[in-house]
């Protein structure tokens, strides 16, 4: 019976990971990825590994989306200036 919470978090992780792969737009992928980071942290906690959960939370919820969004913005800007130069 105590496996219910593990099952729920595993299902959520599987759903989030699949959804992150299926999205086409990188900005939307970053949004799903940030949800995936939070859900993965819960999965680690439920599996009694809160230390891994802490680092996953720090990296997954803020840092990875920030890096991806900064890259997306830089690429979009470069595309815009190239279009303007033409």
């Amino acid at each position: 019976m105590s496996d219910a919470v593990i099952t729920v978090s595993l299902l959520l992780v599987a759903g989030c990971a699949t959804a992150a792969v299926v999205q086409r737009d990188p900005a939307r992928q970053a949004l799903v990825l940030s949800v995936l980071g939070a859900v993965l942290a819960v999965l680690f906690t439920v599996l009694q590994a809160p230390d891994a959960g802490l680092s996953q939370l720090a990296v997954g919820s803020a840092l990875t989306p920030l890096l991806i969004m900064l890259c997306v913005r830089k690429v979009r800007r470069r595309g815009r200036t190239k279009d303007g130069a033409r």
């Binding site: 942290a41 802490l54 939370l57 720090a58 919820s61 920030l66 969004m69 997306v72």
Partner: peptide, 20 residues
């Protein structure tokens, strides 16, 4: 502690998206 970190960093992540 996990909940504390989540309460701190979750809004920060949302603000990243709101800004970018």
């Amino acid at each position: 502690d996990l909940a504390l970190l989540m309460a701190l960093l979750g809004p920060v992540g949302t603000l990243v998206f709101a800004r970018l």
